[in-house]
């Protein structure tokens, strides 16, 4: 088997592979930066919680309209935003930390999701919601995912400074600007949108993986924000492309394959990443003059 057959052939030959590739590219563009900020804001678990919270919304859309893209998207966004904004507001208005309020909200919405699912009881279709269909992306879904990526980049360009500053020095931001609150909420909305975009391809349970794993991986290679975001995006896309190839050649399910490739990149980086990898940190190199 030639290198061409290994890497290019599947995409050249099959349209569903090309669509999947475009899909993971669009997902990576949004998920890379959003994941990086989730990690830097110590909200990795929040992202995970929100991904679970999308399930009942999508299930509700499914309950009324079947496997309809728009119904499930609207349901997912509504549920996700409700959880994100609700938890954010409670965290800001009360003494309860964000992780605690997030956990409260997501447990409620997850239980609700299970309840709704059991009302209808068609578990086969629900596998679609849980694990996505990256190999079955149709035009409307691709346009939706690409639209979310575009909106993400534009919004991040607007809220970049307050978002960064609120991570580094929130007291200082509060003393110079009132942009902290609104930019935080806009960011949470972006998280929800990208998770909903991701769930069509990877499912509600794995879509957060394309955010968190590349961001955490990139952290072991660079020490500055801009390269971190760029690298996370590249790793997300590379994981998507390689994951698709793995799934093609080995007949493995594509969503888990993509996340496992990202997971492998993470595992390698934890060990030998130059910015604080476990092995790297243990290897004694001669110290410098100054």
């Amino acid at each position: 088997m030639s290198v061409y057959d290994l890497l290019v052939g599947p995409f050249a030959e099959f349209e569903f592979m090309r669509r999947a590739l475009v899909g993971v590219f669009a997902l990576a563009i949004g998920a890379g930066p959003v994941g990086a900020f989730l990690m830097l804001r110590r909200m990795s678990l929040t992202g995970d919680a929100m991904a679970h919270a999308i399930l009942p919304g999508a299930a509700l859309g499914f309950l009324f309209s079947g496997l309809n893209l728009y119904a499930m998207t609207v349901g997912g966004i509504a549920a996700g935003l409700l959880v994100a904004v609700g938890a954010g507001v409670i965290a800001r208005a009360t003494e309860l930390k964000e992780d605690a309020s997030m956990a409260a909200f997501y447990l409620i919405s997850l239980a609700l999701g299970v309840m709704i699912v059991s009302l209808k009881g068609s578990n086969v279709d629900l596998l679609h919601v849980l694990f996505g269909t990256v190999l079955g992306l149709d035009d409307p879904t691709l346009i939706l995912v690409a639209g979310i990526a575009t909106l993400t980049l534009v919004t991040l360009a607007i809220i970049w400074r307050p978002l960064v500053l609120e991570c580094v020095d929130p007291t200082f931001l509060a003393s110079v600007s009132r942009a902290g609150g609104p930019s935080h909420i806009a960011f949470l909305a972006l998280v929800v949108l990208n998770l909903v975009g991701g769930f069509h391809a990877l499912g509600t349970l794995l879509s957060v993986g394309l955010m968190m794993l590349p961001a955490a991986t990139a952290r072991f290679w660079v020490r500055d924000l801009t390269p971190l975001v760029a690298l996370a995006t590249c790793i997300a896309f590379a994981s998507g492309a390689i994951g698709l190839l793995v799934s093609y050649h080995f007949g493995a399910p594509s969503g888990p394959a993509i996340i496992l490739v990202a997971g492998a990149a993470y595992a390698v980086s934890v060990l030998i990443g130059p910015a604080g990898g476990i092995v790297t940190a243990r290897v004694q190199r001669r110290h410098l003059e100054a």
């Binding site: 830097l40 400074r161 960064v164 500053l165 991570c167 580094v168 020095d169 929130p170 007291t171 200082f172 110079v176 600007s177 952290r219 660079v222 020490r223 500055d224 924000l225 971190l228």
Partner: peptide, 19 residues
């Protein structure tokens, strides 16, 4: 309360004073 683990350079942190 500066998050010292945030990947930002001295230059960029100082530049925030120009807000």
């Amino acid at each position: 309360e500066v998050d010292r683990s945030f990947p930002i350079s001295v230059y960029d942190l100082v530049a925030m004073g120009l807000w």
